[in-house]
Simulated assay, not measured.
Amino acid sequence: MTTEQQKIEVQKALQALKKGGLILYPTDTVWGIGCDATNAEAVQKIYKLKQRDDSQALICMVNNYGMLEKHVDNVPKMAYTILDVAIKPTTIIYDHPAGVAENLIAADNTLAIRVVKHKFCEQLIKYLGKPLVSTSANISSQPTPKSYKEISEHILKGVDYVVNLQNEKSASQPSAIIKLGNDGKVVVVRE
Rank of each mutant, 00 (worst) to 15 (best):
D53I: 01
Q44Y: 09
K88G: 04
M61R: 05
D36Y: 06
Q56N: 15
I92W: 01
D73L: 10
T91R: 10
V43F: 00
E41T: 01
L68T: 08
H71D: 03
V43T: 03
I82S: 01
Q56G: 06
M67V: 02
A40G: 02
L49Y: 06
K70L: 07
Y65N: 12
N64M: 01
E69K: 15
I46N: 11
A86K: 09
T38F: 04
T91V: 09
T90V: 00
N64D: 15
L68S: 10
I92P: 07
I82N: 02
K88Q: 13
T91E: 11
Y80T: 00
I82Y: 01
Q44D: 11
I46W: 09
C60M: 09
K45G: 02
K50Q: 07
K45V: 00
K88E: 13
A79T: 04
N39G: 07
L49N: 10
A79W: 03
V72L: 02
T81L: 12
T81I: 12
M61N: 05
E69A: 12
Q56W: 08
D36W: 10
R52F: 09
I82H: 01
P89F: 00
L83F: 01
N63F: 08
K50P: 12
Q56C: 11
I87S: 14
K48S: 12
N64V: 01
N39Y: 08
A42L: 06
H71G: 04
L68D: 07
K50H: 03
K77P: 13
N39W: 07
A37P: 11
E69N: 14
S55C: 05
L49V: 10
T90P: 11
L49Q: 11
T91M: 09
T38H: 00
D54E: 15
Y65D: 13
S55G: 05
S55M: 10
A37D: 01
H71P: 12
T38R: 04
D84S: 15
A79D: 04
E41S: 10
L49H: 11
N74T: 06
T81G: 13
I46C: 05
Q56F: 10
V85T: 15
K88D: 11
L58A: 09
T38G: 00
P89W: 00
K77M: 12
A37V: 05
Q44E: 15
G66L: 11
L68F: 02
E41K: 14
N74S: 13
I59L: 14
